[in-house]
Design a protein around this nucleic acid. Structure first.
Lengths: 148, 148
DNA sequence: GTTGATTTTTGGAATCATTCCAATTTAGTT
DNA sequence: AACTAAATTGGAATGATTCCAAAAATCAAC
């Protein structure tokens, strides 16, 4: 029914507990869906995939769970223009590349010191808590579904 | 009624002509509104400001004009999460800084070679047409309404 | 394990920025 | 002035997301 390996499950439970939240079947399922195919699905797509295996889950719950996971810092929410948000499980700092040809989003690994490097661009007095870097263009056409 | 200086008007007319589009009172007015206060207003805010001086303009027209100006590359559309889009007249490459304290957006000047610099982060085969850099955090609290 | 208190889930309604539409008006041309 | 194509307009439609109140599930204490 669910499909989370032990360490992922442990991470989830810990992150939820840290925020004083409960571990539920639905939250596990949503997290499992995101880990299984890292193709930056929208809430609707997550809903469809979760339903295959948990047919009674509701769309509202999918939104709730995704928001919870984002708040716990286990998942990132991506936005391009005002298109539907996409979600990716969080493996630390990375940029995103949107392929205009097929609409896919690829993760781009960032150098360790990226945030401090780029923060030097800021004038005196600006304190950045977060930096977001997104590319748009054409990706090589021989990549598989998952990100790099 | 409108309030565009000669060079701005000339830029607008040229950009529109380049795209085979007509120069209209509404388009001039919307562009003038954006140039007058560079505080990254939403479509609604642009609508309110335009209406003060052109009471019959419609919201649909504001959306149309903004889209046209963006297409002509005279204006940039900014998005944070899925909040309403904001608009800023385009003075070349710059990043944006969202102040979490007051919701204001500041333009951040970028070094000339920024795009080529940061494109080196991309793995072989990725061709970036656009790069977007956005910061979130706290800005110094003695800045005026307009951007840097 | 049952009870009670608190969270979470759920389906459907509501929201709201934006887009669409068909009719009218305007701009540019002959 | 007349004609054609483009732009504007108000209102309806769209669609992702949020809100709501009721039902179900979880956790803690006994």
């Amino acid at each position: 029914m669910i499909n989370l390996n032990d360490t992922a499950k442990a991470n989830l439970d810990e992150a939820l507990a840290n925020s004083g939240l409960r571990s539920t079947r639905q939250r596990e399922q949503i997290y499992a869906v995101l880990l299984k195919r890292r193709d930056h699905p929208t809430a609707d797509e997550v809903y469809a995939r979760a339903k295959e295996v948990m047919p009674t889950i509701s769309l509202a719950t999918v939104y709730n769970c995704l928001e919870t996971l984002v708040d716990c810092n286990l998942v990132k929410k991506l936005n391009y223009e005002r298109e539907p948000s996409r979600f990716c499980p969080n493996d630390g700092e990375h940029a995103h590349f949107l392929d205009e040809a097929n609409g896919r989003v690829y993760d781009i690994l960032l150098p360790e010191d990226f945030q401090s490097m780029v923060s030097k661009i800021l004038p005196r007095g600006f304190e950045a808590k977060k930096v977001k870097l997104t590319f748009t263009g054409y990706a090589p056409n021989d990549l598989d579904t998952n990100s790099l």
